[in-house]
């Protein structure tokens, strides 16, 4: 009961309420499209953050799983007529399985070389899909047949349903993160991120923990891939395995607050809103503006606030509430 009255709970409930009624109020396609992008990329960020943020395994190849999810569901849909809802889960499983050999290779490396190896895996997959002309349409890609309003095939005429799917995915990702953060797994992940050898010394099976979190992260990222191609009705290797997806997954977490529950969400809101504003001021003609601004934000965050901007908000909150500094008790929450 006490918990239901806590400011955190009330805040969360209010936020959920706002997010649920939002599509009823906002009717502009442009605005709702931005909301969907924010939810989607926040979700991808959350998936990345589980491994990259908590365990500090700084992957720059999550596009691999995004693409595998996208292709699995699309191939199942177009070649076999299977609903993308099922394809979505299948894509998740494919990504999970793919993460095993990829992890086996990449986890031999630490730090920057891990990041480089993950870039290589995503690139290899993209190059392979460029070659698979027979069952994956090669470089030309394919449009996804528009069946009109068929919820069972994850196709809708209005934008609101897409919005709710993305919202549900993000809620799922946050719930998983919340659970993991508070369990032994969360402690093990952070310990590995801090010092893998020291973690091993206190009984943490680091390879196994990393493998498991990589599977979860890959699974979730793949869901986003399926959703994205269903939303834009098009797939090609360059969209599905785009390096920018890998980058944005990591970027939003770092800007918001790496290894925190809400960091990726804050980061995505900030970056996507910035990019939307830039677009409406400058038009979409000027390629490069968005990433220029992103990279400037990233550099500033790294130099001045490497723990991410979430901290700025929590500090401000503490300052306003004038609460005594929260005791960082590990499991009080």
């Amino acid at each position: 009961m006490q918990r239901l009255c806590s400011p955190a709970f009330i805040g969360l409930a209010a936020l959920a309420g706002v997010l649920i009624v939002l599509p009823l109020v906002v009717t502009s396609h442009f605005a709702i499209d931005i909301c969907i992008r924010i939810l989607l990329f926040a979700f991808i960020g959350v998936a990345w953050n589980l491994m990259g943020g908590y365990a500090k395994q700084l992957s720059l190849g999550h596009a691999a799983y995004f693409g595998l999810g996208a292709y699995t569901s699309t191939i199942m849909q177009i070649k076999f007529g299977i609903s993308p809802w099922i394809g979505m889960l299948a894509g998740g499983v494919v990504a999970m399985l793919a993460s095993l050999p990829i992890g086996a290779v990449c986890f031999r490396l630490r730090g920057p070389y891990f990041a480089i190896a993950t870039i290589a895996t995503a690139q290899v997959l993209m190059l392979l899909f460029l070659k698979f002309r027979d069952f994956a349409w090669g470089a030309e890609g394919t449009t996804i047949p528009n069946l009109g309003n068929t919820p069972l095939m994850m196709q809708f005429e209005a934008k609101a349903p897409y919005y709710y799917i993305a919202l549900a995915m993000l809620a799922l990702g946050l719930a998983i993160t919340y659970r993991i953060e508070r369990s032994w797994m969360g402690f093990y992940l952070v310990a590995i991120g801090e010092d893998e050898d020291a973690a091993e010394a206190v009984g943490v099976n680091a390879p196994q923990v990393k493998r498991n979190i990589y599977m979860i992260s890959a699974f979730l990222t793949a869901l986003a891939g399926t959703f994205y191609v269903q939303y834009i009705y098009f797939i090609d290797p360059n969209t599905a395995f785009n390096f920018n997806i890998s980058v944005e997954a990591a970027l939003v977490s770092i800007v918001g607050g790496i290894g925190t529950l809400w960091g990726p969400v804050i980061g995505t809101v900030l970056l996507e809103v910035t990019s939307a504003l830039l677009q409406s001021w400058l038009g979409s003609g000027l390629g490069g503006v968005q990433l220029t601004v992103y990279s400037l934000i990233l550099i500033s965050v790294i130099l001045w606030r490497p723990t991410g901007l979430l901290g700025v908000f929590t500090d401000a909150y503490k300052w306003i509430v004038r609460a005594p500094p929260a005791r960082e008790a590990a499991i009080d929450g």
Partner: peptide, 18 residues
């Protein structure tokens, strides 16, 4: 080699989870 970013309690809990 403590886990620098974790509190003392969280450090020791990590061991206890074994």
């Amino acid at each position: 080699r403590p886990f620098g970013g974790m509190t003392v309690l969280a450090n020791v809990m990590t061991g206890a989870f074994l």
